[in-house]
Design a protein around this nucleic acid. Structure first.
Lengths: 128, 128
DNA sequence: GTAAAATGTTAACCGTAACTAACTTTTATA
DNA sequence: TATAAAAGTTAGTTACGGTTAACATTTTAC
């Protein structure tokens, strides 16, 4: 299968949103993704196709989207990165929730794993 | 003229590199830009055209590239952002120069002005 | 001063990621 | 249950930012 396929920032966003918008059965609808990410249904359809090819989600035609095991892990990691960056912005730099959310959305795609880990460590130390 | 034209991340990179690679006369050569940014001469040519349209640089055919007044200010601000983010990564998070440089390159394009200002303030406080 | 090398320009192309419009399928409702 | 609305799909378009290849202009070296 696919071990560590790199995802584009856009596709990381789709994966993360699928993770966030799951219902009790773990299903996510395309239309909700489109709404959440403010893109067209067509864009969602294409992106989900890519995530499917990459083995990160499953979806039968006209059906709901579900994360695979790998997809789930990958998405959770992205989500964790996002929330920690946001925490840093809010709790350390004192930035408002709204701005922090938007900035975290973009920063999560550009920091290296080295910086990510140092940031986590810093958060643990400073917020004990 | 153009008051606050938004630049894409790519074009901010070109502008910043033009700023960094100026010689004593304030001139930058396309070929050096291409080398520095690791792109083709054709890409440089296209990007410089956009910066020219935006009133940020001047260049007569086959001549050197020079920043206009606005271009100079804009580039200096981008450069400042870059170096401060890098300082943060190196001096606060303890990341190595190499990684910090690469991450700063990407982070500089995605942080809001709010976050930028809070980061500067934090740097001043922590590094007194 | 001319020929070769270096530099700059242009045209045509590619991939990504968005869009709209038209269509199919599914779901909900009257 | 038939039909209208909602959701999903597909095809074709656009903009951006890169590419290569061929060409034009400058600069350098003999």
């Amino acid at each position: 299968m696919e071990t560590k396929y790199p995802l584009s920032a856009a596709n990381e966003d789709y994966l993360e949103a699928i993770f966030e918008l799951r219902d009790e059965q773990g299903a996510t609808r395309s239309v909700d993704l489109a709404e959440h990410l403010q893109v067209s249904k067509a864009s969602v359809n294409k992106a989900v196709g890519i995530l499917r090819e990459a083995g990160l989600v499953e979806q039968e035609p006209y059906g709901a989207i579900r994360l695979t095991q790998t997809g789930q892990e990958r998405a959770a990691e992205i989500f964790r990165r996002h929330t920690r960056i946001k925490r840093f912005l809010v709790e350390i730099l004192g930035i408002d929730e709204e701005t922090a959310e938007q900035d975290a959305c973009r920063m999560e795609h550009v920091i290296s794993t080295v910086t990510r880990d140092h940031l986590y460590k810093y958060l643990r130390e400073v917020l004990e």
